[in-house]
């Protein structure tokens, strides 16, 4: 479904990503782990069309999406949950979801379609159901993460890109978020999960890649990587 091949991305003269190759199959959950500054977020942003790579290809359902606008990438079924639960803080939860439905709008907003989509994803997010009219900036961290995921799901994606979804969450809230990802994956959604919490990511993923200084250095079955001494030493503190 998503194939990233020999990707290289520069920020001006700085090489943020040098050689990254990742593949995510349909309905597969894949983790991308690595230290701070390894280039994980940069990879996700380039998939989303927010950064233009210097070299390499990104193929989505067979189509090379390098240089494509974000809207086209969303149309192909990709959605991003950004790092830091970035919400439009002055808008309510419901209004954030409306913006998440944005690619569907023309001059007339498809209100029936929007409400149908909200009803469809409602079951995943019991905690935010009663907070729909609340200003999103006043929600707790965990609730904001839920809204960020809900907003991404509004575009009905086939593959979800998540950037550090557990960052800054309490252990209970982190488990809730990870359980939600397992549930979404169980229902057939492909997930590319970027995480610093390598142990949690490797536990719930099928396959994983290790990103070190802009290069994918290791990849394989997630459970095998959990036992790999190099991963254990570098990312699991063992």
């Amino acid at each position: 479904m998503l194939e990233i091949d020999e990707l290289a991305i520069n920020y001006d003269q700085v090489e943020a990503v040098r050689k990254v190759s990742i593949a995510v199959g349909a309905g597969e959950m894949v983790a991308l782990i690595g230290a701070n500054g390894a280039g994980k977020t940069t990879v996700l942003h380039s998939v989303m069309g927010l950064l233009k790579p210097k070299a390499g290809t990104i193929r989505l359902k067979g189509e090379n999406i390098v240089g494509a606008p974000s809207k086209r990438i969303l149309d192909l079924g990709v959605a991003l949950v950004p790092e830091g639960r970035q919400l439009f803080g002055h808008l309510s939860v419901l209004e954030n979801l409306e913006v998440g439905y944005a690619r569907k709008f023309g001059i007339r907003f498809d209100r029936a379609g929007f409400e149908g989509r909200v009803a469809k994803i409602d079951a995943y997010f019991p905690r935010i159901r009663e907070r729909l009219k609340q200003t999103s900036g006043t929600l707790s961290g965990g609730e904001q993460q839920m809204v960020a995921i809900a907003r991404a799901l509004m575009s009905d994606p086939d593959i979800l890109l998540l950037d550090e979804p557990s960052l800054g969450l309490s252990p209970i809230m982190m488990d809730t978020v990870l359980d939600l990802l397992v549930q979404l994956h169980g229902e057939g959604m492909a997930i590319l999960l970027v995480e610093q919490n390598a142990r949690a990511a490797l536990r719930i993923s099928e396959r994983a890649y290790v990103l070190d200084s802009g290069v994918t250095t290791l990849n394989g079955r997630a459970r095998a990587l959990l036992r790999d001494p190099r991963v254990q030493q570098a990312y699991l503190g063992l």
Partner: peptide, 24 residues
């Protein structure tokens, strides 16, 4: 207060984020 108007506010608050959710 329309959905399109909210997209304006979304751009004002975080242009890159707005683009990432499909706001043109």
């Amino acid at each position: 207060v329309s959905p399109l108007g909210r997209s304006f506010i979304a751009i004002r608050e975080n242009e890159q984020l707005a683009a990432s959710v499909g706001v043109p």
